[in-house]
Simulated scan of single mutants.
Amino acid sequence: MSCNNILKAKGYRLTPQRRVILDILHGEGAHLTADAIYEQVKAKVAGVNRSTVYRTLELLESLGLTVKAELRGSHVYHHAEEGHHHHLKCRICGRVSELPEELLAPLSTSLLEKHGFAADLNHHVITGLCQDCRERV
């Protein structure tokens, strides 16, 4: 179902601000903070304010159109169509690396089979120590 159809089904319109935010998230292919999104939106839509961007991001997240996660001490957003992806973050040096989805698939299966719990494993940051930092401590 398209973003426009999802919004309409929930009683919302695809406003110019919402369209621009979704386009930015879809086109960027990176994790963006709300402030970074705001800077791009205000260059494209006259008169938009920061609170509009924050409210729109909250709405899009509640509808499952965007995903919000904490990364490097900030909340970041990405388009939900980018799929599930995860990160490993070293708590000493702060290095972040991608974690393949297939590594969490057994966890999801185990939670469902053993606990009847269907986990939302959309975007996770797992903290710990990278190899370099482990060797130094």
Rank of each mutant, 00 (worst) to 15 (best):
E81Y: 09
L60S: 00
E101L: 13
G94K: 10
T33W: 06
V137A: 14
T52A: 11
A69Y: 04
N4R: 14
I21V: 13
S62W: 05
E70G: 09
L107F: 13
R72G: 09
A43G: 04
G128F: 11
T33G: 05
V125P: 04
L57T: 01
L7E: 08
H123T: 12
L25C: 07
G94A: 08
R72L: 12
D23C: 08
S51W: 02
D132Y: 07
L59E: 12
H26T: 07
V137Y: 07
L104G: 06
P16F: 12
V41A: 09
I21Y: 08
L22V: 03
H84W: 02
L25K: 02
Y12W: 13
R13G: 09
E70V: 12
V137P: 00
L14D: 05
A118L: 10
R72E: 11
R18Q: 06
H115Y: 15
L104F: 10
T52Y: 09
T33D: 02
L103W: 14
G73Y: 03
V48Q: 04
I92Y: 01
R19Y: 10
A118F: 07
R13K: 12
P100E: 15
K42R: 15
E98H: 14
P100G: 07
G47W: 04
R95E: 15
V48N: 01
R50K: 15
H123R: 10
A30Q: 11
A46E: 15
E135Y: 05
H79M: 09
S97E: 15
H75E: 12
